[in-house]
């Protein structure tokens, strides 16, 4: 189960971007999802993300992320109405509670809770897409210029992880055949039994770390400044998507400055569409953000685009 990275290379167009371009793109998405309050904007972001996730064959993975998201959403939706007193449309007058004061549940508070939940789903989807779209190795490679040792440690640990899980299983089997019953006994007894397993693992892996260190040393690790091996190419598609992200960010900033994307829930919720400028700003931002999607689709259907990007 833990033998594979979450990211799987499927050779899709969307997976072929340079990690820097993808990181910029995701950062913009994240910032926008946190800045926008208007449910319409958030919904459009979610829609865009759904298309992208579909583009990387990730519907199944998305479901998993959404499940967690919905769970957290429920917490948010319960907590918000309990503490918010600003709403005008009270639907239930509750009793006074010592710590929280009077429990007046308002329509707007529930609404706000729901929108917060929506935002959460957007954020979950962003990370879902990130996991499906970017090879962590390439991101590490990007960072190894700035923080080479950390990147190396992360790479090494990532590589050791599946081996560790395999070792764990094997040692557990060995122990079972030596007469240890892991399923029997009280919690304390079971923990005691697991401690045997734990000891073997810890000793073996610490010994292993010495061997790895030796091999690193033999390959000149720490003998001076390291250089960085990078094999990712910057292609027109990367410039296009990076440009798109930056334009989207500036368009969004300009829009927010003029009130597009802002939204007041209290005392009474705004109208969803405040005017044509709201829609225009949304459209522009969405257009810039969908550059990767457009490229991906265009690439599928048009040889010319494919050859140029």
């Amino acid at each position: 189960m833990f033998g594979k990275l979450y990211y799987q290379d499927k050779g899709l167009f969307l997976q072929s971007f340079h990690p820097a371009a993808v990181l910029v793109y995701f950062l913009v998405l994240l910032v926008l999802s946190l800045l926008y309050d208007n449910p319409l904007y958030l919904l459009s972001l979610l829609f865009l993300l759904a298309l992208l996730i579909n583009g990387v064959d990730g519907m199944e993975a998305w479901e998993g992320f959404l499940k967690v998201g919905v769970l957290m959403t429920l917490v948010v939706m319960v907590v918000n109405p309990l503490v918010i007193r600003a709403g005008a449309t009270i639907i239930w007058h509750g009793p006074a509670v010592p710590f929280l004061g009077r429990l007046d549940i308002s329509m707007e508070a529930i609404y706000f809770g729901a929108v917060s939940g929506l935002r959460l789903l957007v954020i979950m989807s962003i990370f879902c897409l990130y996991n499906l779209m970017v090879n962590p190795d390439n991101v590490l490679n990007l960072f190894s210029r700035a923080a080479g040792k950390s990147a190396l440690m992360v790479a090494l640990a990532t590589r050791m992880f599946p081996a560790m899980v395999r070792d764990l299983k094997r040692i557990k089997e060995v122990m079972q055949l030596r007469g240890v019953d892991f399923e029997e006994g009280s919690l304390w007894e079971r923990v005691k039994k697991y401690s045997v397993l734990y000891n073997v693992m810890l000793l073996s892996s610490l010994e292993g770390s010495m061997e790895i260190a030796e091999s690193m040393q033999a390959r000149a690790y720490g003998s001076g400044r390291r250089s960085v091996y990078s094999r990712k190419l910057l292609r027109p598609r990367d410039y296009l998507s990076m440009g798109g992200s930056l334009l989207a960010l500036s368009a969004a900033a300009w829009g927010l400055h003029n009130g597009c994307g802002r939204y007041a829930f209290y005392p009474v919720a705004d109208a969803l569409v405040g005017g044509s400028s709201t829609l225009a700003a949304l459209f522009v931002v969405l257009f810039y953000l969908s550059v990767p999607l457009i490229l991906s689709e265009g690439c599928k259907y048009c040889r010319f685009i494919k050859s140029k990007i």
């Binding site: 440690m153 090494l156 640990a157 050791m160 992880f161 892996s205 610490l206 770390s209 260190a213």
Partner: peptide, 11 residues
């Protein structure tokens, strides 16, 4: 140290 840290983290 690098390999020790990585190994413990993986553990």
């Amino acid at each position: 140290q690098v390999s020790l840290i990585a190994m413990l983290a993986a553990f």
